[in-house]
Write a protein that binds this DNA or RNA. Sequence first.
RNA 1: GCGGGAGUAGCUCAGUGGUAGAGCAUCAGCUUCCCAAGCUGAGGGCCGCGGGUUCGAUCCCCGUCUCCCGCUCCA
Length: 495
Amino acid sequence: MTKDMKDIVALCKRRGFIFPASDIYGGLNGFWDYGPLGTELKNNLRDRWWKDMVLCPPLGPDGAPVEIVGVDSSIIQNPKCWEASGHVGGFNDPMVDCKESKKRYRADHVVVYWPKDGQGSGVAFDKDAEDAEIEKRLKKLTNKALADFDTAKLDQIDTAKFANIIGPDVKTPGTLTEPRQFNMMFHTFVGATSGDENKAYLRPETCAGIFLNFKNVLDSSRTRVPFGIAQIGKAFRNEVTPRNFIFRSREFEQMELEWFCEESEVPMWFDFWVDQRTRFWDAVGIPKSALHFLDVPKDELAHYSARTIDVEYAFPFAAPGYDELEGIAHRGNFDLTQHQQFSGQKLDYFDQATNSRFLPHVIEPSTGLTRGVLALLCQAYTPDESRPSGVYMNFTPAMAPKKAAILPLTAKEDHVPLAQKLYLELREDFAVDLDIKQNIGKRYARQDEIGTPYCFTVDNDTLADHTVTVRDRNTMAQERIHMDKVADYLKEKMK
RNA sequence: GCGGGAGUAGCUCAGUGGUAGAGCAUCAGCUUCCCAAGCUGAGGGCCGCGGGUUCGAUCCCCGUCUCCCGCUCCA
């Protein structure tokens, strides 16, 4: 059984899950619109996250209920916020292109070896190049030994000297272009005039809005450490290469929790949240067997993080590997420290019990809602040549955009009125379809393709004893239940 | 941004220098007591967009946009 992204993308478009944004204008790279079914699916996943995190959060490791509150912060904040977070300074990496090798390099990742005697060209290497390899290439290109060179990072070198540098993958000097800034943040202007003084950014992640409101929440909500603040919302990144359907898009939606605790309790809470998040994915239909937990190696950690576990999912485009679905990071107290410094406002927490002040440490389970939707779609997509539709979407009942279809077995006779009655009853509580036209097989197939877990069919027996058949999407098996029990049946299945 | 591939019906694709087809989907009718997406029919495309060559371009050329694959990037 193979899952091909092309087929999944086609089904999403055909059945109204996801469309290219601005489709009638030819689309826009990295942007997507959610159609009728996709919106329901996304909302179901979003609401389930909010319920599990904020409305009905779990019991903590000690058995006591954990406390989490929500915020909904502005997408545009004071630009100083992004200086404090490091996004303005740290993520505008200057890049250089090589006209010869057609490769692109981060300027600070390229090391240039300059001859100490000033004779001949400088030779550039990737920062991770092995000594033996460097020595060999220097010898070949300049006939000098490693000890005859000084080194400097490319971003520290005057561009006037670039003409005399041999790029990392070529043999002649002068092929490297001037460094150019790559800004991952979308910028905009606040107010009617556009100039540097009112430049602002669309948030590249939602968590900053949580840290900015840390003090406001403390002052207004009687929360006490340990506690969490959650937020769901859009974020924007000017990705160099949007790729893999909605996996890496320029506008996306995040679900983030910042869990504030004492430093000494970090390991306990870290493990707790990894466990909780795994349970969540399992509950919405992503089993642990489809996940991979990557303990991010120290040298690849973000500058603020002491430990991060990437929860990766077996996306078809990553096969046979995995790609990131969620990151659970120990951010230390980096964010509060930075915002305290840049804003000049005290953000420390006063603990009445111990009469001490401190900046809490943070555990951040951060996931992409839209990546979650993609994982749900990929996981649900099930080719099955034995059935007419050739495929069905195996959503859990709780996540499925449509919970059930009500089908009169025939369009004539007297099946229709009973089906309508059942439909009107169910639609008060569930997203259900009533489908009367065409033969029953065609209608089952249609529901399979959009992942409706149950079909209730009215037939001749219904007229006599008010029972209907329940047809299970995955097994195609049927059982009879009383019409009055259908609502309870659905409710039970959606737990 | 670079290299390669591709844009024809809602989807997947054929096709020809003389203004277009198939399968599926959609809709209507028929059939059907349960997978018979079976039967009949209908709607739907200025062949991505803009130029150029030509008597004439969906086809050839140029530009542009978008998508896919590989680099680069992914805090």
